[in-house]
Computed example of a mutant assay.
Amino acid sequence: MSSSYDAEELWHLTHGMRLLVVAEFALDAQRLQVVEYELAISSRQINSIDHQLYAHDLQLRRGGDVRVVPLPPGGGARTRQRGYGPRTRGGGISHRRRVTGDDSE
């Protein structure tokens, strides 16, 4: 078996490789079009959801179409306050007077 190729054999080999590359490129371009199409659909769906949320938020702010639904017995797990006492920032220490350790105030 010879380790060298003549010009015609090399042409056929490189031509076949070029055809393979062009076919792969065409498939990649087609896949890219599918992804771009799906992205456009997703973007329209997100915009629609954003619009619906905005419209719903406006209705809630205006007080329209708001129904009062009774809670289950016990108030429901998500509505119960855990712990005791009021919820305040700063750990209950007044913002005007903080404990500094000296009694000079």
Rank of each mutant, 00 (worst) to 15 (best):
R18P: 00
R82A: 06
T79N: 15
H95M: 08
E38G: 07
P70K: 04
H95E: 12
A29N: 09
W11Y: 15
M17L: 15
R67W: 04
G101A: 02
P73Q: 04
V99L: 08
T100C: 01
S43T: 15
G85V: 00
T14A: 07
T88H: 03
V34Y: 11
Q52A: 14
H56C: 12
V69Y: 02
H95P: 03
G64Y: 10
G101K: 00
Y84V: 13
T88N: 06
H12F: 08
Q59W: 01
Q45S: 09
S104K: 09
V68S: 10
A29C: 11
L39I: 09
Y5E: 15
S94Y: 00
H51C: 08
Q45R: 15
I93F: 04
F25V: 09
L13H: 07
A26N: 15
R96N: 05
A7I: 11
P70G: 04
I49Q: 07
Q52H: 09
L20E: 14
G92C: 01
S48W: 04
Y37W: 12
L13D: 06
A40V: 06
Y84P: 00
T100I: 03
Y5F: 15
D65H: 12
E105M: 03
A55S: 14
I41K: 14
R87Q: 11
Q59E: 14
G83R: 06
R78F: 09
R67H: 09
Y5D: 14
S43V: 11
D103K: 06
L32P: 00
G64Q: 13
V66L: 09
I93A: 04
Y5R: 13
Q30I: 02
V34S: 05
I49A: 12
P70T: 02
G76P: 00
Y37P: 01
R62P: 00
G90F: 02
I46F: 05
A77F: 10
R61F: 07
H95V: 10
I46L: 15
R96W: 03
R80S: 04
H15A: 14
D102A: 05
V66G: 01
G63V: 03
E24M: 14
M17H: 11
G16D: 08
V68T: 13
R89E: 06
I49C: 07
G16T: 06
E36N: 15
R31S: 08
Q52C: 04
A40C: 08
S3Q: 08
D6I: 02
Y84N: 10
G83D: 03
D102R: 05
Q45E: 14
L71T: 03
G85N: 01
Y84H: 11
A29F: 07
D57P: 00
G76H: 02
S48Y: 07
S2W: 02
Q33K: 15
A29T: 13
H51K: 11
R18N: 12
G75P: 00
L20K: 08
H15V: 03
